[in-house]
Amino acid sequence: MSRKTIITCAVTGAVHTPSMSDYLPVTPEEIAEQSIAAAEAGAAVLHLHARDPKDGRPTPDAAVFDQFVPKIASATNAIINITTGGSTRMTLDERLSYPLLAKPELCSLNVGSMNFAFHKAAKGIKNWKHDWEKPFIEGTEDLIFRNTFVDMKSVLSRLGDAHGTRFEFECYDVGHLYNLAHLVDEGLVKGPLFLQCVLGILGGLSADAENLFLMRSTADRLFGRDGYEFSVLGAGRHQTGLATMGAVMGGHVRVGLEDSLYLGRGKLAQTCASQVTKIRGILEELSLEIATPNEARSILGTKGADKVGF
C-alpha cells in the first residue's frame, strides 16, 4: 500500500494574492468549492489556509476557517490538513488558534526558521486589487518565518501529544531535515514521518533536480529508507516537473494554487482540480496507483476522520 501515491492539494496558501490571479480562491465559499472539486479529482489530502473574505489577505481567524472546513469534511472523505504555518506575519498562537480547536488528522509544520522571500513577485503586477497586497509582497524581503525549536516543541506537544494530530513536516532545506532528526532523537516525534520537500522558495533550496536527490539521500541517512514517507512540492513553474520526479523516486506529490498559479506555460490554472487532474494523469501514465483517502490514512498513520473537532 505504501507504494501508492498520495496527491495533496494546497488550495490557497498565504503567498499568492488576488491581483496575481482571478482564480485564486479567497472566500470561504470559493475555498470550499475548490477543495471539494480537488478531492473529487483525486486529492487524498487537502492542505488548507484561510483568507479574509473582504480582501483576500491571509487570516488565522478560527471563525473564517469554520465557514469552510466543516463543509469540506461533510462533502468529501479527504484528509483535512490545517496549516500551522499561516503566514510570516502571524504569531505562533495565532497560527495555532484554529488547529487547536479543530484537532485535525494532519497539520503542516515548518521544521525551522528561515528567510521566506517572494518580494520579486511584485515586479510583474501593474494593477493591484487591494492596498494591502503590494506592501505585503515587497515586505517579505525583510521578514523571517519563525519556528524555533521551542516553537516546534510547542506545536508537537499542544497538537500532536494532546490531540493525536500527525504532521506534514515541511522541509525547505537540508538543515530542516537535521532539525527534524534532532526532534526524533529527543523522542518528540515518532514515525511514520511524512516529509514535504519544498523546493523553489527564496531562502530555501532552489528547485533543481540535484537538490531533490540531495534531500532524498539525506533523509535516507537520517531516518532510513523505510523510516519516512516523502512528498515533493515544486514552487511555481517547477510544480509538475519536480512532483513527477518525486513520484518516480517513490514519493508522493503536492499541487494546488498555493504552490503555483499556472497549469502550463503562460496558462493560469482556473481551479486546483485542474492541477490535480493533470498530475494524476501523468502518474497514471507512469503506471503509478493513486491513493484513496483511506489508503492515505493507513500510509500516514492518522487517527481517522471520526476523531477530529469539526
Rank of each mutant, 00 (worst) to 15 (best):
S2H: 11
C197T: 13
M245P: 05
G301E: 06
P60Y: 08
G224T: 05
E229R: 15
A39I: 00
K278H: 09
S108A: 10
G175R: 15
V11Y: 07
N115E: 13
V15S: 10
P60I: 06
W128R: 11
A273S: 14
P192T: 08
H119G: 08
T91N: 02
S35P: 04
L212M: 09
S108K: 15
A235Y: 11
A10Y: 12
T240N: 07
D93S: 06
I282E: 02
I125H: 13
C107E: 06
S19L: 07
L257C: 08
L188K: 14
T83I: 01
F310T: 12
G227Q: 08
D173T: 05
I144M: 09
F194D: 05
V26H: 11
L263K: 15
I36Q: 01
I282R: 13
P18L: 04
P135C: 01
T12Q: 01
A269Q: 02
V198C: 10
E105F: 10
A78P: 04
G227P: 05
R57K: 13
D151P: 06
F118Q: 04
L233G: 01
H252S: 07
S157I: 02
Q34R: 14
T91M: 04
P18E: 03
E258S: 08
G191D: 00
R237T: 03
A122E: 03
E40D: 11
A14T: 00
W128I: 02
L268W: 04
E141T: 12
Y98F: 10
Y98V: 01
N77K: 15
L300G: 06
M215Q: 10
N115H: 13
S2F: 06
G85P: 03
G203E: 12
P99V: 07
S260T: 15
L188N: 07
